[in-house]
C-alpha cells in the first residue's frame, strides 16, 4: 500500500535539500499541505526560507489553501519564484 508522497524540489529548494525528489511518508488519511511543508522545513532547515517564498503544487495544480489535503500517492512540488525567459 502506498504511504508516501512524491516531493519534487526545484531550483533553490533542490539545492537546499541536495536532492531533486523525496519519498515522504504520510498518514493513510493524508496530511494538510501546511503541515507537510512544516515537516519538510523541520527535516531540512535550509529549505525553510525557500518554502516561505514558494508556491506549493499538488498533482500539477497550485495549492490554494493551506488545509488542502495531500494524500499518499500524490505529487507535491515546491516551486520557488519563477525565472524563465
Amino acid at each position: 500500500m502506498v504511504r508516501a508522497v512524491r516531493v519534487l524540489l526545484f531550483a533553490t529548494a533542490r539545492t537546499a535539500v541536495g536532492r531533486r525528489e523525496l519519498e515522504w511518508t504520510v498518514p493513510p488519511e493524508g496530511i494538510q499541505a501546511s503541515e507537510l511543508a512544516r515537516e519538510l522545513a523541520t527535516a531540512f532547515p535550509k529549505l525553510a526560507p525557500t518554502l516561505r517564498a514558494s508556491r506549493l503544487v499538488r498533482n500539477g495544480h497550485p495549492v490554494d489553501r493551506p488545509t488542502t489535503r495531500i494524500r499518499p500517492g500524490d505529487e507535491f512540488a515546491v516551486h520557488p519564484p519563477y525565472g524563465g525567459g
Binding site: V57, Y82, G84
Partner: peptide, 10 residues
Amino acid sequence: LKRTVPIWKT
C-alpha cells in the same frame, strides 16, 4: 511567461 511559468534558471 517570466512570472507564471514554472521555469528556473541558474
